[in-house]
Nucleic acid binder design. Sequence first.
DNA 1: CCAAAAGTGTTCCTATTACACCCATGA
DNA 2: TCATGGGTGTAATAGGAACACTTTTGG
Lengths: 256, 256
Amino acid sequence: MERARAGENVRSGADEEALFLAGYDITAWPRPSLAVDVAILTIAAGAAHVVLVERTRPPAQGRWALPGGFVRIDESLDDAVGRVLERETGLRDMYTAQLATFGEVDRDPRGRVVTVAHYALVPAARIEDVVTGRAGCALARVTPAGPGGDAPFRLVVPGGAQALAFDHDAIVAAAVERVQGRLWYTPVAFELVPDEFTLLDLQRVYEAILGRSLDKNGFRRRVLASGLVAPTGRRREGLRARPPELFRFAGDGRGG
Amino acid sequence: MERARAGENVRSGADEEALFLAGYDITAWPRPSLAVDVAILTIAAGAAHVVLVERTRPPAQGRWALPGGFVRIDESLDDAVGRVLERETGLRDMYTAQLATFGEVDRDPRGRVVTVAHYALVPAARIEDVVTGRAGCALARVTPAGPGGDAPFRLVVPGGAQALAFDHDAIVAAAVERVQGRLWYTPVAFELVPDEFTLLDLQRVYEAILGRSLDKNGFRRRVLASGLVAPTGRRREGLRARPPELFRFAGDGRGG
DNA sequence: CCAAAAGTGTTCCTATTACACCCATGA
DNA sequence: TCATGGGTGTAATAGGAACACTTTTGG
């Protein structure tokens, strides 16, 4: 442990550091570019969906891709995700979390681009006007195969079966697997339902993410015993059957 | 979905892409630097430890840090991890996995540096000569508080309690939590024991990572029922008690 | 009354815990 | 023979899976 190298003057640590940093140019070496890509997941018509945007410029022009963009020099990763999401979909204040970083050398034909993949969860109601009212935006259905299936899931894009741009198929796969793994252990499912929901709404979220059906009573008791939901006292009216009770999330400010 | 924008010639997709890429310089914009840092975990004397290296140059000169370095323009993240680990510790072919990416704007005084944190798992036997025989390398004891503790864990560095350089304390915390979460669901624990081990060796790994003691018989039956271990037929001799049976990992080429 | 969906009771089974006990070896 | 750690049996419990059943609404 030599705290001052031979041949250097011994100074206080702070002075030495300041001197070093003054003469240091971190931009002197070639280095990768850094991007963020986001798999926005939602539940529509009892199935999981992911938001895709059409690439209007090369590379992969005309193909479907995840919303994404380059990280600026003066913004954090979270800031970049928020900016990119609003620019490409108009959505703000979604739940987002980091997924994994993809850094293969040849993953982008423009050059070396490393991307920090994220996922976002949003209730279907908030997303409908975005996808229907925005050019180049679409929902792709994600059908997870239950545990034991050959492929982890099937992705149905609007214009027929087609691979996404870059390695975005792998990002969607990682997003679905991550949410599957966290579903029972964290309150992520509540990010996919409206503020007030029935237990069967919630159950459909679980079933869509997991790709299998669940027992009604078992699910009900498990959720109620978790203490994460509280009854609102209201019921959903206007159906042609018994009005179901409405609940709200009762955890500490959501989370993930 | 407009696949060719107004005002542009409509060509084949491949031609258009090639033209675009020929005139594209991705290095034109300022962008962050990219690094990898690795928390190497091991079990020694019944406790979890992490490998630290002393910083011999600013910034944070003289402080303890995780092994790490910048990602070169022509190497993948995994390649960078392997290169950095061998350079800073001499260790090769460890199990490594990606953890999370830390991208706060001010986390490195040299400038904007985003780091892709990884963790590595290695049996204690492989690490002893490295740490004892290499200047500026040390083991820090990591004491996880069981579930319900105030802090997630306590880190005991060699020269007294001191924070690690940069945000490396947070990386160690994330590494321990990640391994804790995967311990029962993936075969990561086998990366921390030698090729041949007793079930009590394995149990001590679990206890060190989880920070609590486990029931001997319950652990034994759980591990044997998992089908991940196979008896070797040999026993460990030379103890002052009954020689325990030796097992080996019987899964498909390890994994994570 | 009937269809449809909400909501409940009960049983079976498995995994986990906790604890007590016996066994084999070296000193 | 005794201390030490290896190895086993068993009962209690909690949680999940499966299934049948009752209740409440709209038409």
